[in-house]
Amino acid sequence: MFCLCTGDRKVFIYLQTGGTSNEWEHMSSPQSFFSSTIGKKVVMAVTGFLLIGFVVAHLVGNLQVFLGAEVFNAYAAFLKSIPGPLWIARIGLIVIFVLHLYNAFSLRKIISAARPVDYNKQATVQASAASRYMLHTGVVILLFVIVHLAHFTLGYLQPEHFSKTDALGQHDVYYMLVQGFLNPVYAGFYIFCIVMLGIHLSHGISSMFQTLGFCRPNVKNKLELAAKAIAAGITLGYISIPLAVIANVVTLS
């Protein structure tokens, strides 16, 4: 029998030869996409991609600190002035973050079960350190997010700097930020966590391309480079702020 099939950008005629009918029917129906290991990975990749989007957007916002207190505080005030979209974005972010976390731990459970007895002698041939410590860097990032929220969003840490307003009566986010980074413990913690984020992303971004099926080797090599560049850019961008505070480039005066 002749049947016309399309596959992979090519159309061809396939001459079907025999084959038992209902061949595949005796098998049970496939598991759901989201419970498969590939599905979970795809969720990791997609949520990771969205989180990177947030991280970049947040960075763009933060870098306005270099433009001075007025611009920066106005930006913060603008965000507060649109509570609807802000809350939608916040809830969306939380959902994405939770999905990313949930799948990470769900995959980790599968992975741990897959090798009940480990090798006595461990060796690594080509896996990067970043790829091997994704869970560790991920946990650091989770802790950082909690601390970061407690610090700058909820004001539980350094509450004395949180409630200040500027000359225009806006929430003085600029002051809070500079004060925060003048504290060497907070600044050090921040820099450390951002470096961890960078390491996480250096594998995460290229891994995302692989999981989503970008498989042409020449494209893949370029994507790998792009991944490293994006990770490095994000890291340097974020770190530049506390460094600028410490170096007195961004000051209260």
Binding site: T37, I38, K40, K41, V42, L107, I110, I111, A113, A114, R115, T124, V125, Q126, A127, S128, S131, R132, M134, H203, S206, S207, F209, Q210, T211, L212, G213, F214, C215, R216, P217, K220
Partner: peptide
């Protein structure tokens, strides 16, 4: 287990099967 794209498999594969096929399968 699930793949975390570390490519250790490709490094030890005696036939040098490329991990591009994993991307293809994904």
């Amino acid at each position: 287990g699930s793949c975390t794209n570390q490519y250790e498999c490709e490094a030890v594969c005696p036939k040098g099967i490329s991990t591009k096929f994993i991307a293809q399968m994904n």
